[in-house]
Write a protein that binds this DNA or RNA. Structure first.
Length: 525
RNA sequence: GCGGGUGUAGCUCAGUGGUAGAGCGUCACGUUGCCAACGUGAAUGUCGUGAGUUCGAAUCUCAUCACCCGCUCCA
């Protein structure tokens, strides 16, 4: 990390306005609404020219540090890591085995009065008839949440009262779920929470997975899903990786790719999007070593986010409480989130990356579902035993990471013309440097272009010859460009240029032939 | 999904029933010679969208979409 990027502590989240950050993202071409000219679409965002560079830099830094140059593990050995790139659409059996189909597929019903939400198949009702001596019949609806027995018990007094003095008391149509009731029945249905009648909405599907159809025929047989996480691609190819890559436990498989979740409420700019990109590691270990590897990944992932510029009080590591753990993690070594204090979550935090001990839940589930079972256990040569490896999963959001970088970089500064600058870590900055001829004549543009052509072979740099130098500096401040090199009349005499530092506004002169070395030193190649 | 708010040029906003505007930014030319300087000129609008009321709608009504805030949801 350079001195500049760490010069003073991060801007407190509370003083940053999300509206201002969104406005800058739009104005400078970081992030736009998808399909904006048609009014946009809820939960989908596009990256513009600066945004795509920033997000690529984030993903490439991750891939470099995770796959190409991982560190040493808790056992003191270099970590073994390989990458994969799996498809978004997979055999739908994958999602049955993983528990995504079925578990999160139920129609839900909301109460308009008390805002409670229920699964429609848990809401049941039955119409009762009671005939009295004069053959006039009386009917009433008993409704509630749970099994018929529970509902009857809950409505015991009401039933006794209504059936009093009547004969031939019965419910001829039996119990029906809320979804099976007609409009009249739904209107009489009492909310189990607040007791109001007719306040429940129509049942609505909350399908977290996007569905599509593969092939020409659109029927149930051809129904497929857009993956809601990249992890399952890794799990299903685990055995191929083991057979072809000479890896042995402990080792990791990494993947960067799009995932899709049909969120009920996309919110907070790109934070909760329906289409988003994940950077996931599944790290396979011996079951008895889960604890030390969990701690290793928890700590190293936290340090990594610090290393790319999220170093201040706005980043925190939070261990999950037992109650909030997912079904597969209840007995595990732990689950934690690495969280960032976004302006819209402040003073709270929002998740950037989750590190979870998933045990052997996924590998076992796929081994069972595909019918091969224990034959798919991993063979540990050294220990001469077979087992399903446990998994530590560090799963990060590329879009959330990009958003955190944007929020962290946003630095109001009334002392400079732009009023704000983006203090990106140089490694992540979309544009590494700008090259300016002080004026667009007297041989300066030619020198500038020559320097530009040389530097762009290695870094994303820009040349700008238009307008006065102040405007060009101001534009680069909003783009977050850490260095500007200016060619002036002295350059033509002594072969030096000025370097203007984004964060301090200081200038220094260095040799024209030293510029590339300067950038290598500050940014890396 | 519920409740509240917002929506006019790239940005910030003015415009309360009668010709769609300003500042900034952008672009061109000139000038300038290190921090959005100066001069001249130019481009830029489905007034979020669609209906309705009206002789006439950015303006009033309804619906809808998007964004923001609060609930809810987030395996």
């Amino acid at each position: 990390m350079t001195n500049e990027s760490n010069a003073n502590s991060a801007t407190p989240a509370a003083t940053r306005s999300m509206d201002d950050i969104v406005a800058l993202c739009r104005r400078r071409g970081f992030i736009w609404q998808s399909s904006e000219i048609y009014g946009g679409i809820n939960g989908f965002w596009d990256y513009g020219p600066l945004g795509v560079e920033l997000k690529r830099n984030l993903k490439e830094a991750w891939w470099h540090d995770i796959v190409r140059c991982p560190g040493k593990g808790p056992d003191g050995n270099l970590i073994d890591m390989v990458g994969v790139d799996c498809t978004i659409i997979m055999n739908p059996k994958v999602w049955e085995a993983s528990g995504h189909v079925g578990g999160f597929n139920d129609p839900m019903v909301d109460c308009r009065a008390c805002k409670s939400r229920f699964r429609a198949d848990h809401l049941i009702a039955s119409e009762f008839f009671a005939e009295d001596a004069t053959n006039s019949d009386k009917r009433f609806l008993i409704s509630g949440l749970g099994e018929p027995k529970e509902v009857l018990e809950a409505n015991k007094k009401k039933l006794e009262k209504l059936s009093k003095g009547h004969t031939d008391f019965r419910n001829p149509f039996g119990w029906r779920s809320f979804a099976e009731l007609n409009a009249d029945g739904r209107a009489k249905f009492q909310c189990p929470e607040c007791g109001e009648s007719g306040t429940l909405t129509e049942p609505r599907q909350f399908n977290l997975m996007f569905e599509t159809y593969t092939g020409a025929i659109r029927d149930e047989e051809s129904k497929t899903y857009l993956r809601p996480e990249t992890a399952q691609g890794i799990f299903t190819q685990f055995w191929n990786v083991v057979d072809t890559s000479r890896v042995k436990v402990p080792f990791g498989i990494a993947q960067v790719g799009k995932a899709f979740r049909n969120e009920v409420t996309p919110r907070n700019f790109t934070f909760r999007s329906r289409e988003f990109e994940q950077m996931e590691i599944e790290f396979f270990i011996r079951p008895d070593q889960a604890s030390e590897w969990y701690q290793y990944w928890r700590d190293s992932r936290y340090e990594w986010w610090k290393s790319i510029g999220l170093a201040g009080d706005n980043l925190q590591l939070r261990e999950h409480e037992k109650e909030e753990l997912a079904h597969y993690a209840k007995e595990g070594a732990g689950v934690c989130d690495i969280e960032y204090r976004f302006p819209f979550t402040a003073p709270g935090f929002g998740e950037l990356e989750g590190v979870a001990h998933r045990a052997d839940y996924d590998l076992k589930a796929h081994a069972t579902a595909c019918g091969k079972g224990d034959k798919l256990r991993y063979f540990d040569q050294e220990r001469n035993e077979r087992y399903f490896p446990h998994v530590i999963e560090p799963s990060a959001g590329a879009d959330r990471g990009t958003l955190a970088l944007l929020c962290e970089a946003y630095t109001p500064d009334s002392n400079r013309p732009s009023g704000v600058y983006m203090k990106f870590h140089p490694r992540l900055a979309p544009i590494k440097a700008a090259i300016f001829p002080l004026v667009n004549k007297d041989g300066m543009p030619e020198v500038a272009e020559k320097l530009y052509m040389k530097l762009r072979q290695k870094w994303n740099v820009q040349i700008d010859v238009k307008q006065n130098i102040g405007k060009r500096y101001a534009r680069m401040d909003e783009a977050g460009t850490p260095y500007c090199f200016t060619i002036d009349s002295d350059t033509l005499n002594d072969q030096t240029v000025t370097v203007r530092h984004r964060d301090t506004l200081q200038q220094e002169r260095i040799g024209l032939d030293k510029v590339a070395a300067f950038l290598s030193d500050k940014i890396g190649d």
